[in-house]
Amino acid sequence: MDTQSYLPVKPGVGMEENFLSLDDILLSHERLPIRTECSFPRLGFLEKSSDSHDIPEGTKMELPLWLSKGLYEKKRRVLSVELPKVYREGWRTVFNADPNVVDLHKMGPYYYGLGSQMLHFDSPENPEIAQTLLQTFIGRFRRNMDSSQNAYNEDTSALVERLDCLEKALFSSGQSGLNSFQSWEKGRASQLTASSLVLNYRKRKINDLQP
């Protein structure tokens, strides 16, 4: 495994968001169901279902996380954020029963990230949400780590398929550790290799040539 010289900006941990991280920007684009608590004049075009000039008070619509976070205020009620289905009571029971059977990629794919962001909005269920997130992660971690450390030279797509983005990153770092350990065992750790960036560029060039 060679060292990569491109290190992207890491996503923030927990409730924090990292301003420049691409992952966090994509995460904060996830849509949340909200209800407006005051009217937004002259922005009626944002709400496709009605033709009115304004967005009236009490409209139910979906807004991206970044906008909900920006507009949300504890003191003045501008909008109220509803919990997405996967964080509600019903799904929490499922997660608590057996976190391993759930397809987090379909649910998320930013299940943990979005869940932590939901804690920014004052909701009475916050402690339960946080607890479920943590327990889900703990419950799935063992299996995730096991598979990332033992799948050597095989097709991992079936293993990664049902993982959340955070888990996927953990999986691939486990894999790269496994690969470098194996190459060290074979005495290949000191072999100089072509940079993967260069190789990828070449691959694309060949693809470009073939119509």
Binding site: L20, S21, I25, S39, F40, P41, R42, L43, G70, L71
Partner: peptide
């Protein structure tokens, strides 16, 4: 003063666009 929520919404969009562009160029 009822225009204020709309102003704030647009302002959030401005900040968001700014963030995306900065992140794009920085990355």
């Amino acid at each position: 003063s009822e225009l204020i929520p709309s102003i704030k919404l647009r302002h959030c969009c401005l900040l968001r666009n700014q963030r995306c562009l900065t992140a794009y160029l920085y990355d």
